[in-house]
Design a binder for these strands. Structure first.
Lengths: 324, 324
DNA sequence: TTGAAAGCGCTACCAT
DNA sequence: ATGGTAGCGCTTTCAA
């Protein structure tokens, strides 16, 4: 391992000088600087981030806490974050919390112990963040106590409900996601609001966000509500499972049954018929969260710390064309 | 921040003693130990991993380098790795390389600068790892120069081809993945081998692993080979896209056209008809890679450093039942 | 403009 | 069994 001393010796200067050119801090003569830079090149010297981090009590690391990377919505978020922080030289320590409080705590602990400069989290026990001295940005699963980036779930929920209504569903089943997950709950409530003000009848059924949960719910929904002619799913995985089951038992989509998903994960376009869904700008959300955190780290003032991104309807073929 | 000095002072012992109980090294009297432990509790002291890392030149960090977490195969791998290393107190720094040599280099650099103890990589430019002093385990995209965990692509490719053949496809189109990706190439070659020894005719078409590439290839395949009655796809995303397009243009699946995918990503079960595919034990592969790296770190000898896991056929409904 | 040296928090050696 | 202390590689005063 080549250290700053090696560079200093080789260049015939002191480590302080090398450090100065490394950090572009303090005065250093042009010639000396050039020389040092050359030696750094020649020796292929890379500063030891750990030593740096120890002294400065900071690092080039950011902690990213996600519920479960296996849920196809989150890789998009993660990529957005990664690509955005990468430009500024930051790297990610990531953890999947599985919504387990213990795991979350352990990861936060590790983040801190490794001097991460900030944390981006999509998690439900955000109270743990309250006393940290480093900035935290909440992503997707947010509360108002922290800088947050999320999408407009009111808008999304209403849009989904209206879409089904306007295209003629009269007996709608709402597949509600886990109640402790705020975004799921919000879009559910918004959809409910629209539905109650309509003349359509509707049912509510609980489901989970996971692949297995989705499969089970899909079977259940047609047993419980065989006559339902519109399904409003809490995410695309659930919608895909429902679509599968509907096709399996011989329903025509969208003639007999309309389905609308939520998220617009990549696969939604590839199932058949392709899924009508509410698009969340997941990648962009990740990017925005990263930018926000970076801005906070730079101590930029006067910026908006609650970023709400719009969603939009992606009309594909699990819904009928609206009569115009 | 509470440091080891604070603990030492509060407990009325030296930092050396505290360090000893922390690391369970050297002698320390039971009483003293108990006292120190209590103070640690009381002060909620957590050792600074950065300082530790600087001195010991090691850490509790492992670098994970993946091509693209957005491809649904990789989150499974990643979870396998994460869950396995987590038990031993290790955490992950992850990077998506996008198969870009530059990015890979930068990530490896960062890993090193942060004293990661080892690297698990699924990447194509493995020569960069040759001169590292830390252990490297290759995962999925492997070469024989490094400890590796991968699945049996020969077996998978043959199995896929045979499945199509045995179920009556006579005009098979093979959708070959990127040629520079070894697993894709291997299963392709194996499939080709089986196909050439059969009396069926077959075509080869190039495609990419991505969502957009898959969509484009799906359109193209039916223009070029409208009469094909069996598609052997390089992964499930491509298979799903093909299934979509086939259904769209009115083919009956599996009567007119059989499709077989590769990977068995979670969504494959949820599309309709559910996808017949070759299952790769992705999560387990991740786990095994982690275990292998951990074993190497512990300097355990006499273990197998080339772990080849079997694949299996998951027979769902994009292929016909075999006549028995 | 440059260098010497202290110190970030920890571990490990050498005394005692 | 315990304490003092050097040193991991770096940054940053302070002096020259």
């Amino acid at each position: 391992m080549v250290t700053i001393r090696d560079v200093a010796r080789e260049a015939g200067v002191s480590v302080a000088t090398v450090s100065r050119v490394l950090n572009k801090s303090g005065y250093v003569q042009e010639d000396t600087k050039k020389l040092v830079l050359e030696v750094i090149q020649k020796l292929n010297y890379k500063p030891n981030e750990v030593a740096r981090s120890l002294y400065k009590r900071e690092s080039k690391l950011i902690g990213l806490l996600l519920p479960d990377i296996t849920n196809p919505f989150f890789p998009e978020l993660a990529r957005g974050v990664e690509d955005a922080v990468q430009h500024e030289g930051y790297r990610l320590i990531v953890g999947n919390s599985d919504e387990d409080k213990e795991k979350e705590f352990r990861y936060i602990e590790t983040f801190l112990q490794n001097h991460v400069m900030g944390i981006i989290a999509s998690t439900i026990h955000s109270d743990r963040f309250l006393n940290l001295k480093i900035p935290v940005v909440l992503l997707d699963r947010t509360t108002d106590q922290f800088p947050s980036v999320y999408s407009n779930h009111q808008q999304g929920g209403r849009l989904a409900a209206r879409t089904l209504l306007e295209r003629g569903s009269r007996e709608i089943t709402v597949l509600r996601g886990p109640q402790h997950i705020r975004p799921a709950q919000e879009r559910f409530l918004a959809a409910l609001d629209v539905l109650s003000q309509s003349s359509a009848c509707f049912y509510v059924m609980d489901t989970s966000f996971t692949f297995n949960g989705a499969k089970a719910s899909a079977k259940e929904v047609f047993q419980k509500y065989p006559k339902t002619d519109g399904i409003l799913a809490c995410n695309d995985v659930v919608a895909t499972a429902v679509l599968h089951e509907a096709l399996r038992i011989g329903k025509r989509i969208p003639e007999d049954l309309q389905i609308i998903g939520y998220d617009d994960v990549p696969i939604s376009e590839l199932v058949f018929p392709p899924l009508t869904t509410i698009h969340q700008p997941a990648y962009k959300m990740g990017e925005e969260a990263a930018k926000l955190l970076l801005a906070i780290l730079r101590k930029e003032k006067c910026m908006d710390t609650q970023i709400k991104l719009p969603v939009k309807l992606i009309e594909r073929e699990t819904t009928r064309k609206v009569e115009s």
